[in-house]
Design a binder for these strands. Structure first.
Lengths: 224, 224
DNA sequence: GATGATTAGATTATCTGACAATCTTACTTT
DNA sequence: AAAGTAAGATTGTCAGATAATCTAATCATC
């Protein structure tokens, strides 16, 4: 039995040491770190190896690097992680049913928040309205799909719940194939549906918007 | 106003192209990728630059690399993400309000699905019950946090909407700090709350479960 | 003396090239 | 035919060099 001992990758060791370095120094976002060269000699590795470690951390926003300035402790934003969420084990082989149900859940769940914020900010309605107006003039399927995604994205955005934004983008990738199966005749129905949703929201009739949006999204169910 | 145009980092572009390469090729975990050298020439960058991109992705588990074998597709390693995002002081960037609202939205939105599936599958209730029973015997805060996360995760899982699972895992990382501020005296209240939720679900009283879960999650709001 | 422009230094970004470590595969030998 | 072996392929790591960019000090001008 040849125990294939997983030789610890150099950059993983470096990443871990850098983590403890930040922890033990009690460093806060914005604090400066030693330069790449100094860290490399301190950890006893070459600069490329050190860079592979720092770049991994930078990918998550844990550290930031700017030329001429050096390395600093960064601010984490979850966008980076959620952007690559499509590679989560749970995302493999997602059925169409699940996708539709998930979208209904999120988009209808967002409606009360949107309605509440709309009362204080007129521009939210205007934005959605503008997209829908453009949608009416769409001639190609590609443009229609693009604008339709933009509309629903803006709807989530209007809720102010930023974590959902990134997630929706992931979902959109998987959902695209359904949109592309939409026939031209069905466009107008979708646009009218959009309009009823945002008008109901503006008037504060959340339940009505909920019903309308639900049937709108679920109309995809027939096409599979 | 000095327009600091963020010049897109080369490795970020490469990472993104690699992501779309995997997505468009519909590659599954375990599938082989081209070699580093080939990818480098294909993307028009040097090998070190390409490596900084692949190593960033490898850090998340999205790709795996082994000498002599090459690059293969992986899936997101949540433990790794938790380990490095969980410690970071900059987690406070995502507002607590948004996190709580998002969790309420998703977990309450899931309840009708859970109730429906529970009717056809008793084991869903049993699983949740088992976790809650363990929760009662938790002695350390660390164990309590772990089990509490497991409970809410299982709740989402019971809905059968796997896309939400992926998202919840990420959210859990950011929510951890709230759980860790829970006092021991409050454990029991949480456990009873869990129990009322799943009992209501089993009985098909979705609205009651909704109310209960909503106040349960929103109880975190006071602690900030 | 204060202010603005310029320049020098520091630091990361990227590349070229090389060698070591390790796994896969095909070949050779029994 | 099976097992051991060697060659090839691929990632891991390193050294060194140049470009791009930011910071800070210096200098000229008013």
């Amino acid at each position: 039995m040849t125990e294939t001992i997983e030789r610890p990758k150099l950059r993983d060791v470096v990443a871990d040491r850098l983590k403890t370095f930040i922890l033990e120094g009690d460093l806060k976002p914005g604090d400066r770190l030693p330069t790449e060269a100094e860290l490399a000699t301190r950890f006893g590795v070459s600069r490329p190896s050190l860079r592979e470690a720092t770049k991994s951390l930078e990918f998550l926003g844990i550290v930031e690097a700017r030329p001429g300035r050096g390395l600093t402790v960064g601010s984490v934003n979850m966008d980076r992680v959620t952007e690559y969420l499509g590679f989560h084990p749970a995302m493999h082989d997602v059925s169409a049913e699940e996708l539709i149900d998930t979208r209904v859940l999120i988009e209808t769940g967002v409606l009360p928040h949107v309605a509440r914020r709309m009362k204080q900010d007129e521009s939210l309605y205007d934005k959605l309205n503008a997209i829908n107006a453009e949608l009416q003039q769409a001639r190609s399927l590609a443009r229609w799909v693009k604008l339709d995604i933009a509309f629903h994205r803006e709807l989530i955005c209007a809720s102010g719940l930023s974590p959902l934004m990134a997630f929706t983008d992931v979902l959109a990738v998987f959902f695209r194939r359904f949109r592309e199966s939409v026939k031209k005749a069905e466009w107008s129905g979708g646009i009218e549906s959009h309009q009823r949703v945002i008008d109901a929201l503006k008037a504060g009739r959340v339940q009505e918007a909920d019903r309308e949006l639900r049937t709108h999204i679920e109309s995809h169910r027939e096409r599979i």
